[in-house]
Amino acid sequence: MGRGADRAPFPTWTSRGAVADRRRSSYVLVMRVELHSVFPLRRARVHEVYGPGAMSFAAMAAMGACLWIRESWLVDTPTPQGVLPFLDPAGLLMARPKDQTDALAVAEEALKDGALPFVMIEITRALNLREGRRLQLAAKAGGTTGLCLISEGMGSNAAETRWHIAPVFDRHSEDSTLMRWEINKNKSGTIGAWHVRWEPKTRRVHVVSPVGERPGSAGTSS
């Protein structure tokens, strides 16, 4: 019961969330997890994302004000015009610590404080279990969502979910944001994969089609 109460309350799609919940409880063998049960990332947890589209995922996952922690030596920069379809650049704060120790300290401080609901951390060195756990506890204390942008293989065991994001070529329309989202690790659910597209007008993610009939994979095989 305690675990059920702890589970994320599906913040946006309440009615559909309730359906998914009922289905999961009545049929034990549900292999395919619905995106909306995992995507607005669970609050008060720290998640991880890697892959070529990690930064896009971070921009899509952040809602409202957020703090983006990048070490000062990283030369590439997110552009506010590029971020504009996903979130308002006016609510974006950047922290530029000099190394990862400072970055983690800033992240812990920001997660614990709760003044900003979303904190992104670019990880350049693999976290050990203690560091990952501390971030997790800080997020829990502040009720904020953390997202670590990692490189492949840098994942920490303490992460709530781990995502792999890759952009996919869209044969049908140009300027598309079609990408493949795969959830590799999920502490409170099953893993899954989706093809999604960002809808800039409504600022939400649309699931394009089930995994079996991927237009991207069809395009590359032909």
Partner: peptide, 13 residues
């Protein structure tokens, strides 16, 4: 903020 044409999310040298 305004953006007439699509701009990349990430810029590098």
């Amino acid at each position: 903020w305004s953006c007439l044409r699509p701009r990349p999310l990430r810029l590098f040298p």
